[in-house]
């Protein structure tokens, strides 16, 4: 489905963010990408849809090679890759509906998008998605009126209305509180399962990643250090990825917290 071959990114400053990364993601697999800050997680995601131009190597989406595409071809392929951002990256001064529909920009011409005359199917789909994430009532609100969790849901809708085959998710929970983080992660993973989407999720919160994904890849200094199932993430492995830390105590504690949150959620219902 997605295959990275010897992907290298060297910034102008000489920093090598990615060192010949090889990675294959099959259809429908949700993968978490963990690693310390500066390990190249964001760069890797951005090299896939070429928001950052890779220096060398190849990116295969199904049977198309992305790094050699012309700008028109790249735009058509970008439609197949939805992206979700850490700070939501909604256009603050547009309404929720406009933000969701902006996911269809790759499919409509300039004037139709400029005058906001989207095809009725897109509008129907936008309402369906907003209903699915529980924001139907907010459709006419401006994006900057929403809370963090709500904004991220709009961001998810914008990515999904593209009808993508792959989701690129960059730190979806880093700006959210623990409870909302869990809800957002659950939502992303459920939606991926419903639609059979593959996803790469950059995430700092190891405990959260272990709860939701089928596969974890650890990145350190731009190279893959670990690739396996979440259960295989032992304290030793975490030490090789992040460096020395008392993993037993902290990770267990987070999971306890999480159970308490889950109980609180149940109680609140």
């Amino acid at each position: 489905m997605l295959r990275l071959e010897k992907l290298v990114k060297t910034y102008k400053t000489g920093d090598q963010a990615l060192k010949a990364v090889d990675l294959t993601i099959p259809q429908g697999q949700v993968m978490a990408l963990i690693g310390p800050s500066g390990a190249g997680k964001s760069t890797m995601i951005r090299c896939i849809n070429r928001l950052v131009e890779p220096t060398s190597g190849q990116v295969w989406l199904e049977d198309t090679e992305l790094t050699g595409l012309s700008s028109g071809g790249l735009r058509r392929k970008r439609r197949e890759m939805g992206m979700i951002f850490q700070e939501y990256a909604l256009v603050e001064r547009l309404t929720v509906m406009e933000n969701v529909l902006s996911g269809r920009l790759g499919y409509v011409g300039f004037w139709r998008s400029f005058t906001r005359r989207y095809p009725q199917e897109s509008v129907d789909e936008a309402f369906r998605l907003l209903d699915r994430v529980g924001l139907l009532a907010m459709a006419d609100k401006r994006a900057d009126e929403l809370s963090g969790g709500q904004r991220q849901r709009v961001g998810i809708c914008r990515a999904l209305i593209q009808n993508p085959k792959l989701l690129l998710v960059d730190e979806p929970t880093a700006s959210l509180d623990p409870k909302t983080s869990r809800q957002i992660m659950r939502l992303i993973c459920e939606l991926c399962a419903e639609r059979g989407l593959a996803a790469i999720i950059n995430i700092h919160d190891v405990a959260l990643a272990k709860m939701f994904v089928q596969r974890v890849v650890g990145l350190r200094f731009g190279a893959i250090e670990f690739d396996g199932r979440p259960e295989e993430l032992t304290p030793d492995v975490l030490t090789t990825i992040y460096g020395e830390e008392d993993w037993e105590a902290t990770i267990e504690k987070v999971e306890d917290d999480d159970e308490k949150t889950a109980e609180a959620e149940v109680a609140a219902l």
Binding site: L90, R104, L105, S113, F114
Partner: peptide, 23 residues
């Protein structure tokens, strides 16, 4: 990042301007 987000949807240069920059 708002511009990045619009670019990532596959929008054209002019659409990025109209949606990502103008607002």
């Amino acid at each position: 990042t708002q511009v990045e987000a619009i670019t990532a949807t596959g929008a054209s240069r002019w659409q990025v301007m109209a949606y990502g920059i103008v607002p």
